[in-house]
Design a protein around this nucleic acid. Structure first.
Lengths: 341, 341
DNA sequence: GTGAAAGCGCTAACAG
DNA sequence: CTGTTAGCGCTTTCAC
């Protein structure tokens, strides 16, 4: 019995009438134990409600069963779902999950957060590279620790699971262009770096089609920031289609457009990105690209596990978000566009 | 140097030319060290990039700096925000956070999850008692471990932080009644137990006003489950006001009502609960009760910390959600209601 | 197969 | 103030 009142391995050994290493053997299955003693040990474990100490185990075996997730945020839709995916996969493999939030890319803050985390006995680290904070954090992880980056720009030296946002954004923009829009305006969410997959894909489609490339409009993560942008967009008669960096911003933009007295998709088509669970319920239901964040998380954990076990056959995993066409997009109205007004 | 390539405390001691305990002393600040040696040690720590091992520390000092959060879900709005609140408060106090998800109240699953968690050296546990899984998990935590329950029914023997949902639901129902509605229908989200604060407050207001108490309608956590309910509600001419267990369900219900050809709030008023960030952007903007989950999480962590340090002056903390009146509610239309049709 | 002995990295007495 | 001595709870040699 230790001070916390928990039975220890030697309590179990005493009760079973065997040595401590024997108990350890039935616990780990590392070596064979006679059925008789094994049974004795198991009974003692059950009687005492014994639970091995992860701290002691990690200390001596150097095989921690904990992974850390480093994220810039835990409650926004994409982040939360990705974390959920990692957690589910980790739990299935017997790993416990630790969460560290890095709210900004501020060097001190990143250092402090990483420092606190690395103090733990960790099998590996998963970094959500969705924002500058994630990018900064990734750079601070010591090289000897297995790491996987989730999303973001391609990392040369790190295992990485991504969603091919650029391809999906390109497809979505193509679809809008195919509807007859002369060009597509773009509202961006805060990018993790200078380059942003969604913006890149959008630009690529426009360029390929020989369409005008309007200046990018920047929103914050707060959906309300889309309202003013929506109003401004509505005031410009050249605007007939808008592609937003995520569904929440699209919802704000739609509200701004509606408040300005225009209709969606009658006057302006609006598309989002992510397929937030509420996108489908919106009025009108939102056209978007479905990002399967939970699967991203699962794939990421698999890559991390491969790195931990050194069984990495591939270190990169990508998946393409699916276009989901609903009612917020339609062919342009004849009254609007560069010709009209 | 250990096998993982990390410097250990004895590497630091060697490099600084002092004994291991002296290094420990500068690390913990437990005893005074001469400025000269302290400087030597600090230099060695910096040179080596030394980081103390939390496993070894927890093992010997019995003061783990980790808390576990047990939750039935991590990505739904209320859960995610609460977790975020706990994490922020914990980080500020130097605690690391571990997350354990218990997806169902299934005994085996709860046991497995708790088991894995308790293996870690833990200072305490915060349980999100939002659902049956949380309730089941709370019952399994060994008594000697500091615990705080977040939300849910009052716990006699546990520190607990709650949001007074019953009072807020009552206020919201009163408001609807005050608008002139004969009664208010209620769509419930899955309750954590038989009693549910939101439902209780709604019933209390109705009873106090001497209004009819219509049967409760049950939705799942999926916002889409509200659609069919909304359609059914629209088909009943006696329905003029609906109070939904959360904003997401309200959005589904509103869509069902709209699809049935009725208008909100013209024909039916709809109110939600929580004040999801998107509630304000909805069409029409949703009347709801704002639940400050992040603060709930912070208060919960404070209570847990008090329990850990045994400085608990109070073991219960409650806060009342604020009514947020927007455009989805209005006086009843003369064409509907028990008199009309 | 099984026990005795050693030691993971660290902090807590205990001398001095 | 500082070094020496123990020992946390567990796994890993290494004999037998």
């Amino acid at each position: 019995m230790n001070r916390a009142g928990n039975p220890t391995i030697s309590d179990v050994a005493a009760r079973a009438g065997v040595s401590v290493p024997t108990v350890s053997r039935v616990l780990t299955g590392a070596a064979r134990v006679s059925p008789a003693k094994r049974e004795l040990v198991e009974a003692a474990i059950a009687d005492l409600g014994y639970r091995p100490s992860a701290a002691a185990r990690a200390l001596v075996s150097r095989k921690p069963q904990t992974i850390a997730i480093i994220a810039g945020n835990t409650s926004r839709y994409g982040y939360a779902e990705t974390i959920r995916g990692i957690e589910i996969a980790a739990r299935a493999e017997g790993y416990t999950v630790m969460i560290t939030v890095v709210e900004s890319a501020d060097e001190d803050e990143v250092d402090r957060a990483i420092e606190a985390t690395l103090t733990q006995p960790l099998a590996g680290v998963a970094v959500l590279k969705f924002d500058p904070a994630g990018v900064a954090a990734l750079g601070k992880i010591p090289g000897h620790l297995p790491v996987v980056a989730l999303s973001g720009v391609r990392e040369p030296d790190t295992a990485q699971a991504v969603l091919d946002e650029a391809a999906a954004a390109e497809e979505l923009t193509d679809y809008l262009l195919g509807l007859g829009h002369r060009t597509v305006h773009h509202v961006r969410v805060p990018p993790s770096r200078k380059v942003d997959g969604r913006t890149t894909g959008w630009r690529r489609a426009l360029r390929r089609a020989g369409a005008d490339i309007p200046p990018v409009l920047d929103a914050t993560w707060d959906p309300k920031s889309g309202i003013a942008i929506g109003r401004a967009l509505a005031a410009d008669p050249a605007v007939t289609a808008v592609f937003c960096g995520n569904d929440e911003i699209a919802m704000g933009v739609m509200r701004g457009i509606t408040e300005a007295g225009l209709r969606i998709p009658g006057d302006i088509s609006v598309a989002g990105f992510d397929d937030n669970p509420l996108a489908e319920l919106w009025t009108p239901p939102l056209t978007t690209a479905r990002q399967d964040f939970a699967t991203l998380g699962r794939r990421g954990f698999q890559l991390l596990l491969d790195a931990v076990n050194d069984t990495a056959d591939r270190r990169y995993s990508t998946e393409r978000p699916q276009l989901v066409i609903r009612d917020s997009t339609a062919p342009p109205s004849p009254e609007r566009g560069p010709a009209g007004a």
